[in-house]
Simulated scan of single mutants.
Amino acid sequence: MTQADAIEIALPITLGVREALALSEKLAALPAAEAYVFNFASMGRIEPFGSLIASDVIDRFRRNHPRARFKAKGHEHCGYAAHIGFFKAFGLKFGKAPGEATGSESYLPIDFVDCEELRQRAADEYAEVGEFIDGWAGKVAGLLLQTNAGPLFDTVQYSLREVVRNVVEHSESPRFGYCGQYWPSQQRVQIGLIDRGVGLKKTLSTNARLAVATDRDAVQIALMPGVSRKGILPQARSSHDPWANSGFGLYMTSRLCSEGGSFVLLSGSAAVELKKSVKHMHAGAFSGTALQLELDLAKAESLSSRLAAFREEGIRAARTYFNSDNLTASAASTMLSRNFQDS
């Protein structure tokens, strides 16, 4: 096959969930070429999850084709994307670097946290890694909810802390990235998180009780309460509080966001999107794991009142589904179908 002289890749008008996933698949399927041209002329609104996925897959595509030439065009009008570090995140010298913008109450620019630095800092101070993640989780939860107090804030902070601890302690990712945006006119807020770890399938496969054959299996099993790489929550004893146990972070954030916004979990070739009582399964091509947490703040009060119900439902689900020797994707799909219809 003759190698193409140049291939042009046009970025979509909007960088949301589906557009970013489509871009990841498109780049993975491109043939070899002497040059690749990324055209940003049509790109308008970008969202946190979409901007993280797009910048990451472009960066890795560039690194995977070291002999090819790369060019960007039409990006000069993308002021907000440049400001939050989108372009420099994949090596284009335009705009601010990730973490350079100071952020505000309405947005968090693209930024990356070095996992080894966190682990080393904790070791130097004889502390748990979670202590250092706690402050970060509080900052992100504050943007997500536009408040720094209350039971909903405490739950989201806890959930984010657990999710990021899993990245730092188990994913083998050198760093994790995040980005956030609050749209006051829509009362909508979104947080995106990514890592370059081994992915959920490999991580969960170290647990002998989990039957994880595919990425599609992994993203569904990961949402079950009490699931982790180390084990499955056992039958609860009277003195045991399952909510304090590992494995509830993704479950609680998925319940909160899906009932009051949307939730997306992407790993490898599969993504699950939960929104308005509907479950969508998507294809993607992402080496690692990514999350989208989105909330409609107009529903925050009702979500706060339902926290206890979510926890109790999670405990009951753990007791129901974790009696067998192996937990399968079928069981995970059955549990999700109690709250979400397949699209």
Rank of each mutant, 00 (worst) to 15 (best):
V163G: 02
K26A: 14
A81V: 01
G177F: 02
P174F: 10
Y36I: 03
I46Q: 08
V17M: 04
I9F: 07
S185K: 15
R196T: 13
Q220E: 13
E19L: 06
A81Q: 14
L92I: 11
V113I: 10
P151I: 07
N39I: 02
F153H: 11
F94N: 06
E47F: 15
L293S: 08
H280C: 08
Q187G: 10
M224N: 08
R175H: 09
E128D: 13
F132I: 06
Q235T: 12
F322I: 04
D124A: 12
F263C: 12
Q3I: 14
A4W: 07
A308I: 11
V189K: 03
A68G: 07
T203F: 00
R209Y: 12
A298E: 09
L152F: 05
R63A: 13
F263V: 10
R196Q: 14
L193P: 00
V212I: 14
G16V: 01
G260H: 11
S287Q: 11
E128L: 15
L11R: 07
G130I: 03
D342L: 10
F94V: 08
D114N: 14
G231M: 14
E312C: 04
F87Q: 05
F86M: 09
D59R: 15
H83G: 07
E100K: 03
P184D: 06
Q3G: 10
R161Y: 05
A89E: 09
V57G: 00
A308E: 15
A20V: 05
V212H: 00
Q187D: 12
R175F: 10
S330V: 09
V189P: 04
L293G: 03
P12Y: 08
T14G: 06
A29L: 10
M224T: 07
G199Y: 03
S262C: 12
T214Q: 04
S267W: 06
K26T: 14
L23Q: 02
S333W: 00
I110R: 03
A218E: 06
G247I: 04
G95W: 02
A123S: 13
G247F: 00
D124V: 10
D215K: 01
F310N: 05
D134F: 12
I133P: 04
D241S: 12
G226T: 01
F132D: 05
Y158F: 15
Y107G: 06
V17Q: 04
E128A: 13
E105P: 01
P174K: 07
V227L: 00
E162R: 03
E8K: 06
L15F: 07
D217I: 04
L23F: 08
G288W: 01
I46N: 07
S277A: 15
L297P: 06
G95D: 01
D56E: 14
